[in-house]
Amino acid sequence: MSQPSSNILADVINKYEAELTNDWKRTLTQVSVGTGLESELAQLCTQFLPLFSRAVQRAAQENINSTEWDEARNLLAEFSRLRARQGFTPTQTAMFIFSLKQPLFSLFRREFATQPAELADATWLSNTLLDQLGLFTVEVFQQSRDQIISRQQQELLELSTPVVKLWQNILALPLIGTLDSSRTQVVMESLLQKIIETGAAIAIIDITGVPTVDTLVAQHLLKTVAAARLMGADCIISGIRPQIAQTIVHLGVDLEDVITKATLADAFVVALQRTGATLSPTLKA
């Protein structure tokens, strides 16, 4: 695209800035009815248009990644990130830019009524730029969503591996959710650390909350048991559901060396016996 057409575009925007801003705000209000953010959007329109026209005027190519577009891009990026955090859809985010097209094009039609060549040029240029900007907002939106997801994953990881002390020298590790390599690593480390801290002789790994056990998960469990044994603590695996027991046998996983119990209560009784404690019912008078 030649320099003149971008100049024409910038001139038109500057000339009719107030009118264009108002039209844009009106279009935005129509597409974003019910979001309750009209005033915020209106303010953003007023900020964005001058940046847009300045960038159009200064940038040599129709590429929004050049430095001339920095200001406009930063404003949009901030807006998109905010939208992602507030839980809006990508469409709602991108509509902000795309809704500028209609008022801008009708302005062109009026301005270049007798100059079809300029009309086509200006329309094409602004269309290309606005498409790029719209896609840019979606991209930033997606990125911030990904960040949110990975942060939540991290939080879940920290939350989901508590090691609790049941009794003197007895630890329990209630596992909830699917076990993958990174999670098992965290589980293993926190269990071993806790064994050192408390000097526990027995650890009960309860897998009632683990939905499926495949070869990988079984492998991870066996590794945890082996590592605990190397440190001098015994492990009991409890809470194995009937289906999971069948799966384990079908997969040919060897749990021969590990004590397994159906429920946490059974495992606890065994652990108490191992540590030399006994439970007896008290008769009430």
Binding site: Q193, A200, A201, L230, G232
Partner: peptide, 23 residues
Amino acid sequence: MQPAVAITLVELGLNLTGVKTAL
């Protein structure tokens, strides 16, 4: 045995079967 050492040995596939352990 330190936790990190235990994890490493297990990852290496060395379970030291036949060796008794204590805390």
